[in-house]
Amino acid sequence: MQPQLATQIHNLHLKNPVMTASGTFGYGEEFADFIDLGRLGGIVVKGTTGERRQGNDYPRMAETPAGMLNAVGLQNVGVATFCDEVYPRIKDTDTHIIVNVSGSSIEEYCAVAGRINELERIPAIELNISCPNVKKGGMGFGTKPDMAAQVVQAVRKVYGKTLIVKLTPNVTDIVEIARAVEQAGADSVSLINTVLGMAVDVERRRPMLSTVTGGLSGPCVKPLAVRMVWQVAHAVSIPVIGLGGIATAADALEFLMAGARAVEVGTANFIDPTATVKIIDGLEDYCVRHHIDDINDIIGII
């Protein structure tokens, strides 16, 4: 018998728990030559802001052991161009397209969420209150429980569909933030965004990134992410989406067992553009091997 891989995040019925992480999968189109996008549980597209943004100066990327630092700084076309030009191109993709909503003020978050709310084929947003690469706002909202609650409350008023809030690991107590956004009306939380980091080019005696600090991602952050997902999953009753360093089915299973209802794959897409489908196949193999009929049976078993 085929194992059942479908899971649910609030009103979102996913074919399987494997989605893609914002900022690592473009608008999905970039990967269409390599995989059948219709196999994915969902695609979270690039962080979208009120206006077009140029992002930070080059260099914006530095490779690190088992990971990378980025300081892209939310370069994106802005919500108007997203709605007019990108959305018509991607809306018929045979999976859930979720927009990662970013901003520097509560007004901006609300304006973007309000526009996206009108798009029929976008069933959910992921509110990014956790970007470490912008000077104003971004992570600022995600590091204080009262600020996080304020943004979520405000967005909740203008956004009626599934509202996922993406949390930053750059806090002392992530549980406190997760509880605050749950109370403010979030339907789900996803974690983790990148870990604030830094690297130095010792030959040139300069920071590797134009912004000095940047966001760390990739396999090196996985244990930290699994720990945080486990903590949050035990503290809130809304579904948790886990991410951070997932490259294989075994990695994804760690998150599911720790309590994630779904996962997102980020940096691994750069190393292997077919990583997501390999993970989906691997989950199925695992279920067959362990006689698991329904993947939900192993979610949160730890």
Binding site: T24, F25, G26, E30, F31, M61, V72, N269, F270, P273
Partner: peptide, 9 residues
Amino acid sequence: ACGIGACLC
């Protein structure tokens, strides 16, 4: 990082 236009690095 990606080489295919997905990461904007």
